[in-house]
Amino acid sequence: MLSGEGLWVRYGHRGPWVLRDVDVDVRPGEVVGLWGASGRGKSTLATTLAGLRTPDRGTVQVDGRPFPTAPREGPRPVQLVLQHAERAMNPRWRIRDVLAEARRAGDGEVDPADPADPAHGLVDVVWLDRRPHELSGGELQRVNLARALLARPAYVLADEISSSLDALTQALLWQRLLGEVRERGLGVLAVTHDPALLDRVADRTVVLPDRAAVDGEDGLDDGDDGGRVPRARLRPAPESRPLLPPGPGHRRIANRFTIGSRSQ
């Protein structure tokens, strides 16, 4: 199980908390939807669970062991797939090299023509010698997902992977992920703002509360999804480290990521 427990994250030492005591679990073979209006920290939670950001407080564990482990042992079992594939790969590398980077030692060449290869059905053989800018957005996102699957992960964090793609490519990416969920028990965290897509793919949905509302009585967001979906559990702020009172003076910072879902 991939679990984040009591996660607190903020940018800088004085910024407002982006994640306040958030608990999330993803079990093998299940798809957990993560929903919330923009600015609620969905992407921050995804990068934290992927081990790309160290939480200020709280722990991330994979199958009961602290994650990420040091020293690194090959590709990580948790792979993050980002919305903008072109920002997640080296623009000067050929697709062949982009994919090869994710292979485990001893896996051999990437061969999309081989039905047993994780890239099969996602990557076309003729793309291998091209560079990222020579593929369309949809094609590049297929490469992006193939790279994550080549690492043979136990968990995939899909951060808005299809929100700038046409319906057909969206269905192709998700059918592939759902296939992996069924066949080999992959656990998936699906981050999206599209309710129709969540209805379709998620076994259950976690809603990140509005940070402003957290400071109120109930800590619930103002969405109309009352009671339908379990919410992220909230606890009062620890006494030891009092928080700045929320107020109009608190600027929300944009959650921008230029970090790649580079696998080691």
Binding site: A167, L168, Q170, A171, D194, L197, D199, R200, V201
Partner: peptide, 14 residues
């Protein structure tokens, strides 16, 4: 037709 059927609210199929 394929685009229409691929919508999550429809068949969600490729």
């Amino acid at each position: 037709r394929a685009l229409w059927r691929a919508l999550p609210g429809n068949d969600f199929e490729v």
